[in-house]
């Protein structure tokens, strides 16, 4: 999980929600991520696919509510009412890529 979280962090791509659970096979776990659908998502998914420990990646549809039970368990408002692709950008969440001078 630290490989997955670290990847999103160092590519400056916000993860709005994360849940990680063991599966029936003790050598495997499942990670659920809530991310914003923007132009860079495809790039991050490709980077994710390169991680040795990532075996498979699937996508729920935009606006899906996979996190709703987690929200109940955490006693916080459901995160998806606004729709995953309409969430306001946080301060560092909408950095322009490809434009920085080094």
């Amino acid at each position: 999980m630290s490989h997955v979280c670290g990847l999103f962090h160092r590519r400056l791509f916000n993860v709005d929600g994360i849940a990680c659970l063991p599966t029936a096979d003790p050598s495997r776990s499942a990670v659920l991520l809530l991310v914003r659908e923007d132009a860079r998502l495809e790039q991050v998914v490709r980077q994710l696919a390169k991680l040795t420990d990532v075996l498979d990646i699937g996508r729920d549809p935009v606006g899906g509510n996979a996190f709703a039970p987690v929200a109940v368990a955490l006693r916080c408002p459901p995160p998806l009412e606004r729709g995953a692709d309409e969430r306001p950008a946080t301060a560092d969440g909408d950095r322009q890529d490809k434009g920085g001078d080094l």
Binding site: E42, Q43, R46, Q47, A49, K50, K98
Partner: peptide, 9 residues
Amino acid sequence: VDASELGKI
């Protein structure tokens, strides 16, 4: 050989 390089820049 690295798919993530295609379209990155």
